[in-house]
């Protein structure tokens, strides 16, 4: 679906942060903000909720660790018990190192794959971004012009006063 958007470009992170706060105050809907690096405080300014990927990490780690503990127990105490150095079949202390490593491995890979899936990043994905300079030194805020009451010119003046390097409108149907 086509939508009108306002692209506001900055060359300074502080300008971007205050502009984002302004936009939220005016209750304009921010489609997204594009930055060359992770700007400290931007997620708070945008009102982004804490990511739920931490849960994915915890659950994958728990599965890895507990699963491997169970597997080692099954191998050594149930499937084919072998007397190794007189140790008991069920040697919990000896099972810890491998279980720990598998916990870390699954937690790490689970989190990263979840990140790529949720952010829709994959080999061959065409980068959808309003400007090629974002990965260099420009910060871009994309505002959706929701309704007819949105005064693009007033917004443009506001942002230019706040230090915007460029403000332009566009109509697009790209999924950002």
């Amino acid at each position: 679906m086509n939508e009108r958007q306002l692209l506001v470009t900055f060359d300074h992170a502080d300008d971007l942060l205050s502009a984002v706060e302004t936009a939220r105050r005016e209750r304009w809907s921010i489609v997204d903000v594009f930055t060359p690096y992770a700007v400290h405080g931007l997620d708070r300014a945008m009102g982004l909720r804490p990511s739920r990927l931490t849960w994915v990490c915890f659950i994958c780690g728990a599965i890895g660790g507990l699963g491997m503990l169970w597997f080692q127990h099954w191998v050594a105490a149930i499937a084919w018990p072998i007397n190794v150095g007189g140790k008991p079949w069920n040697s919990l202390p000896a099972d810890v190192p491998v279980a720990f490593e598998m916990m870390i491995l699954l937690a790490a890979f689970g989190s990263v794959f979840a990140l790529l899936a949720v952010s829709r990043l994959y080999p061959g994905k065409k980068a959808v971004m309003p400007s090629g300079e974002i990965t260099d030194d420009r910060f871009v805020m994309v505002i959706r012009q929701d309704n007819a009451a949105f005064d693009a010119d007033a917004a443009r003046d506001l942002f230019e006063q706040a230090g915007a390097v460029d403000v332009r409108e566009r109509v697009t149907d790209e999924e950002l």
């Binding site: 992770a38 990511s51 952010s119 061959g124």
Partner: peptide, 15 residues
Amino acid sequence: GWNGSARTWHRYETV
């Protein structure tokens, strides 16, 4: 397909 989106940065920083 990295595009510098702040929403992605937010999750990225968490991970």
